[in-house]
Amino acid sequence: MLEVKNVSYYYKTKREKMILNDVSVNFENGIFYTIIGPSGSGKTTFLSLLAGLDTAIKGEVLYNGEDITKKGLNYHRRHNISLVFQNYNLIDYLTTIENVKLGGNQDAEELLKEVGIGKEYWNRNVLQLSGGQQQRVAIARALASDAQVLLADEPTGNLDERTADEIIELLKKTAHDLGKCVIVVTHSKHLSEEADKVLEIKDGAVYSIR
């Protein structure tokens, strides 16, 4: 589904600091992945490369065997992947259901039911929702897309333990029941333990932990 092939990345500062060094990884549908590693190890950079928000210095990112730059990064972001962020990134002047409809053509009402947002919240401004509710709306928005890859950057970072567990279950369901490829960057040991496969980024390399 999604493949990183011999990718290297570094920041062009006075002294080049290698973030990723000749990394190759394959990701498959129906699997819930987490990516862990020390702060500054390159986890968010790696996710940005998968999302087409940044480009590798060397190597390529492939979607279904095709370099994502061939059809363009905008195409990749619009059709192949959906994103969930730690700070939700909802449109704060829109209602709950309007935010979900922005994600794609899937039934917004059904998606909100799936993620546990009751009808009484659908027409409220999203700022009137709790943090956990906003993250559920963000996941519903991501699922509104037909994209087969869901990428999440610290999706439980701002949530209490109970709410975080509910979000983790939603992510697992997205992979196992909907058959999507779910890739999550996290500092949370608990979240990583719930994944099917765990990758660690350290010293420019990506290791398979489980």
Results as ranks from 00 to 15, higher is better:
residue 110 E to N: 14
residue 128 Q to K: 05
residue 123 N to Q: 11
residue 9 Y to I: 01
residue 70 K to G: 08
residue 3 E to Q: 10
residue 161 E to N: 06
residue 82 S to H: 05
residue 49 L to N: 08
residue 42 G to F: 03
residue 58 K to N: 14
residue 61 V to N: 04
residue 32 F to I: 01
residue 163 T to D: 05
residue 24 S to C: 09
residue 83 L to K: 02
residue 15 R to V: 09
residue 59 G to C: 09
residue 22 D to L: 07
residue 74 N to R: 08
residue 34 T to V: 09
residue 98 E to R: 09
residue 205 A to S: 15
residue 103 G to Q: 08
residue 172 K to V: 14
residue 99 N to R: 15
residue 71 K to R: 15
residue 96 T to F: 03
residue 200 E to A: 11
residue 129 L to R: 08
residue 8 S to A: 14
residue 71 K to W: 12
residue 4 V to K: 13
residue 116 G to N: 07
residue 107 D to V: 13
residue 12 K to S: 12
residue 35 I to D: 12
residue 126 V to I: 08
residue 42 G to V: 06
residue 145 S to Q: 03
residue 191 L to V: 02
residue 5 K to G: 07
residue 159 L to A: 15
residue 169 E to N: 09
residue 131 G to E: 00
residue 132 G to M: 06
residue 48 S to G: 04
residue 153 D to Y: 00
residue 128 Q to A: 06
residue 12 K to N: 15
residue 50 L to Q: 13
residue 65 G to F: 07
residue 103 G to D: 12
residue 203 D to Q: 13
residue 4 V to S: 05
residue 143 L to Q: 03
residue 46 F to P: 09
residue 197 K to L: 15
residue 150 L to I: 12
residue 176 H to N: 00
residue 88 Y to N: 00
residue 36 I to Q: 01
residue 78 R to I: 12
residue 42 G to A: 07
residue 172 K to P: 03
residue 132 G to Y: 00
residue 174 T to Q: 09
residue 102 L to N: 10
residue 158 N to L: 12
residue 152 A to V: 13
residue 52 G to T: 12
residue 190 H to E: 01
residue 182 V to A: 02
residue 172 K to N: 11
residue 164 A to F: 07
residue 181 C to D: 00
residue 27 F to A: 05
residue 60 E to C: 04
residue 118 G to K: 10
residue 95 T to L: 11
residue 22 D to S: 15
residue 198 V to P: 02
residue 192 S to R: 00
residue 197 K to A: 13
residue 125 N to A: 07
residue 58 K to Q: 14
residue 28 E to T: 10
residue 100 V to A: 02
residue 205 A to T: 14
residue 62 L to R: 15
residue 157 G to R: 09
residue 151 L to V: 08
residue 127 L to F: 14
residue 161 E to M: 08
residue 141 R to I: 05
residue 16 E to V: 06
residue 64 N to I: 07
residue 9 Y to H: 09
residue 41 S to M: 10
residue 137 V to R: 00
residue 184 V to R: 00
residue 168 I to W: 01
residue 26 N to S: 14
residue 95 T to K: 06
residue 77 R to H: 12
residue 114 E to D: 08
residue 26 N to Y: 11
residue 207 Y to R: 10
residue 106 Q to G: 05
residue 153 D to L: 11
residue 36 I to R: 03
residue 162 R to D: 15
residue 114 E to R: 14
residue 43 K to N: 10
residue 22 D to M: 07
residue 82 S to R: 05
residue 53 L to F: 11
residue 144 A to N: 05
residue 48 S to C: 04
residue 63 Y to F: 11
residue 119 K to E: 12
residue 83 L to E: 01
residue 63 Y to T: 02
residue 36 I to G: 08
residue 101 K to I: 15
residue 7 V to G: 01
residue 122 W to A: 01
residue 118 G to M: 06
residue 200 E to L: 12
residue 134 Q to G: 00
residue 189 K to E: 08
residue 172 K to I: 13
residue 12 K to A: 13
residue 113 K to D: 15
residue 3 E to C: 04
residue 104 G to S: 09
residue 186 T to Q: 00
residue 61 V to F: 09
residue 111 L to D: 03
residue 50 L to C: 04
residue 137 V to K: 02
residue 37 G to P: 03
residue 32 F to E: 00
residue 203 D to Y: 12
residue 93 Y to A: 05
